[in-house]
């Protein structure tokens, strides 16, 4: 575990906490894409199939349980909570799941580390995570007033991905035989998707203005 990896995981954890804070305390999910949250729940459910079979560390297992639990509870809150669900605007969140899920599944069947159920599901989760933010980014473009917590949530998610790239660079130079093309290419694509958002996020921060993405 290096500092970039730890910082990346902590940033990821912070993003989840920011979203839970918004949902629990403010009882609102305005500006949050349920589509993206459902895709993340699917990402974790398919990636962590090894949770009971391969023990890596207590840290690893604990984080997996946190990400699984939080992603499914966020979906539950947006769909079923009496007050929270009222702030969800379905008409704006129109991205189709299968438009992302099917290509990722096909790619996972073709490009994987080993052709077994667990490995294909793992590759699928990596590909799906790379694009899962798209419904959220589309929703942000449609939202006129992006509140601070939503902006911070997406910023933290992007920062987590950027830190993972630094982690891979560090590991490549410090560990022998550390080569992971599937995670590297997908991770790079995933981080690039945030480039546009980052640009406007820093602009709004620099000029002390409300965040707004051009349509």
């Amino acid at each position: 575990m290096n500092i970039f990896r730890l910082a990346g995981d902590m940033t990821h954890l912070a993003s989840v906490l920011v979203l839970l804070l918004k949902i629990h305390t403010i009882k609102s999910c305005a500006g949050i894409s349920l589509k993206t949250q459902e895709l993340y729940a699917l990402v974790f459910a398919t990636r962590y199939l090894d949770i009971f079979t391969d023990f890596i560390s207590l840290y690893n297992t604990t984080m997996k349980l946190i990400f699984l639990g939080s992603s499914f509870s966020i979906v539950w809150y947006i769909r079923n909570h009496k007050i929270v669900s009222r702030s969800y605007d379905k008409s704006q969140d129109t991205f189709r799941h299968y438009f992302l899920i099917i290509p990722c599944l096909l790619l996972a069947l073709l490009v994987n580390e080993k052709f077994t159920f667990k490995e294909v599901m793992w590759a699928f989760s990596i590909y799906l995570e790379a694009v899962a933010i798209l419904p959220q980014l589309v929703l942000l473009q449609r939202t006129r007033n992006i509140d601070n917590l939503t902006g911070q949530y997406v910023f933290l998610l992007g920062a987590y991905r950027a830190l993972y790239i630094l982690n891979w660079i560090y590991r490549y130079f410090t560990e022998t035989h550390y080569v992971h093309w599937i995670t590297w290419v997908s991770g790079l694509v995933q981080t690039l998707l945030y480039a546009d958002f980052f640009y406007y996020y820093f602009e709004s921060w620099k000029n002390n203005k409300k965040l707004q993405l051009p349509a």
Partner: peptide, 10 residues
């Protein structure tokens, strides 16, 4: 790919 590796990242 030829072999699968242990997944120590999240």
């Amino acid at each position: 790919g030829t072999k699968s590796s242990p997944k120590d990242e999240l």
